[in-house]
Simulated assay, not measured.
Amino acid sequence: MTAAELTVDGLTLSAGARRLVRDVSLTAAPGEVIGLVGPNGSGKSSLLRAVYRVLRPDSGRIRVDGTDAWSLPTRKLARTMAAVVQEPGADFDLTVRDIVAMGRAPHKRLLDGDTAEDARLIVSCLAAVDAAELSGRPFDRLSGGERQRVLIARALAQQPSLLVLDEPTNHLDVRHQLQVLGLLRRLPATVLVALHDLNLAAYYCDRIYILSEGSIVSSGPPVEVLTPEMLRDVYGVAGEVVVHPRTGAPHVTFLPGQDAAAGDAGPL
């Protein structure tokens, strides 16, 4: 597996008369972890849906290794890109192992069964997200956090060159949030991930794109884009940003009870 290059150029998306994303451009070099952050409704999920081909853009292009993603045959795209979405659809009447095994489908013909290598990979992917003990359980009886880890394991089983994730830490406890994001950093793949937690984005992402009202308002390394001014202008909150003495990453502290203009509340 070789990490892919992702290029989004001048992407615009609409839903009826509403503009969801406006003229967005971004790049992800092979092997980078790129974070998308911004308030609810800022366009993060819509942008990701265009990248993994659920929403067709009004204009602009999405290229994977230089090829228009919308021109690729579905099976070929599935061998290159995997997605973990916020709303995976209805409950499946399948076991956890069956769900993860779906990730191998793009790599085999229609009626092919699992090979020994498939079986090894399925076990490995479940173990990677601390879900090995869930293998035989019905997927529809899992907790939200357990389901999320299984869906991430399914994406890993696809062995993608590009992995797109929409809020993958939703429903996860702190230990599994750190485990999953640490795993993403170690993958031999390019990662595009939407995150709400700015401190997780600061620590795990190489670069961050900040969206507001469907447009990118800032982009760059976390230390450059995570600023008190950005918190005020984009999120409408007051906060402080310092370099954490142990991690070396920027660390955001919000100031509750204090609006973005002025106030006197202490840090959270």
Rank of each mutant, 00 (worst) to 15 (best):
residue 152 I to T: 01
residue 143 S to K: 09
residue 155 A to V: 08
residue 173 D to K: 07
residue 106 P to N: 07
residue 119 A to C: 11
residue 101 A to I: 07
residue 197 D to C: 07
residue 146 E to S: 04
residue 128 A to C: 07
residue 115 T to N: 06
residue 108 K to Q: 14
residue 189 A to I: 09
residue 135 S to D: 12
residue 124 S to N: 10
residue 94 L to M: 15
residue 170 N to Q: 12
residue 125 C to G: 05
residue 99 I to M: 13
residue 198 L to Y: 04
residue 144 G to N: 10
residue 90 A to M: 09
residue 200 L to E: 09
residue 176 H to N: 14
residue 139 F to Y: 15
residue 164 V to H: 03
residue 188 P to E: 09
residue 114 D to F: 05
residue 176 H to M: 09
residue 178 L to V: 14
residue 166 D to F: 11
residue 130 D to T: 09
residue 135 S to T: 14
residue 150 V to A: 01
residue 105 A to N: 05
residue 97 R to D: 12
residue 176 H to W: 08
residue 196 H to T: 07
residue 142 L to V: 02
residue 126 L to F: 09
residue 133 E to Q: 13
residue 122 I to N: 00
residue 178 L to P: 00
residue 169 T to I: 06
residue 112 D to K: 01
residue 160 P to M: 05
residue 99 I to T: 08
residue 117 E to A: 15
residue 136 G to H: 13
residue 152 I to L: 04
residue 101 A to L: 09
residue 133 E to M: 09
residue 94 L to F: 15
residue 175 R to W: 06
residue 118 D to Y: 13
residue 117 E to S: 14
residue 145 G to H: 06
residue 125 C to H: 05
residue 90 A to S: 13
residue 187 L to I: 05
residue 122 I to A: 00
residue 192 L to H: 03
residue 97 R to M: 02
residue 173 D to W: 08
residue 166 D to G: 12
residue 143 S to N: 09
residue 129 V to R: 03
residue 145 G to W: 02
residue 146 E to L: 02
residue 186 R to I: 01
residue 125 C to K: 12
residue 194 A to Q: 07
residue 185 R to S: 07
residue 99 I to L: 11
residue 199 N to Q: 13
residue 88 P to G: 12
residue 92 F to S: 13
residue 181 L to D: 01
residue 194 A to R: 03
residue 189 A to W: 02
residue 186 R to E: 15
residue 177 Q to L: 09
residue 134 L to W: 03
residue 110 L to S: 03
residue 152 I to W: 00
residue 140 D to C: 12
residue 188 P to M: 01
residue 184 L to I: 11
residue 199 N to Y: 10
residue 88 P to Q: 12
residue 113 G to N: 05
residue 97 R to S: 12
residue 160 P to V: 07
residue 123 V to R: 14
residue 124 S to H: 14
residue 167 E to Y: 02
residue 200 L to C: 10
residue 126 L to W: 08
residue 181 L to N: 04
residue 160 P to K: 01
residue 137 R to F: 08
residue 128 A to P: 02
residue 143 S to D: 10
residue 151 L to R: 08
residue 160 P to G: 01
residue 144 G to A: 11
residue 202 A to S: 14
residue 91 D to N: 12
residue 175 R to Q: 11
residue 134 L to K: 01
residue 188 P to A: 12
residue 197 D to I: 04
residue 112 D to E: 15
residue 162 L to E: 11
residue 178 L to E: 06
residue 171 H to V: 10
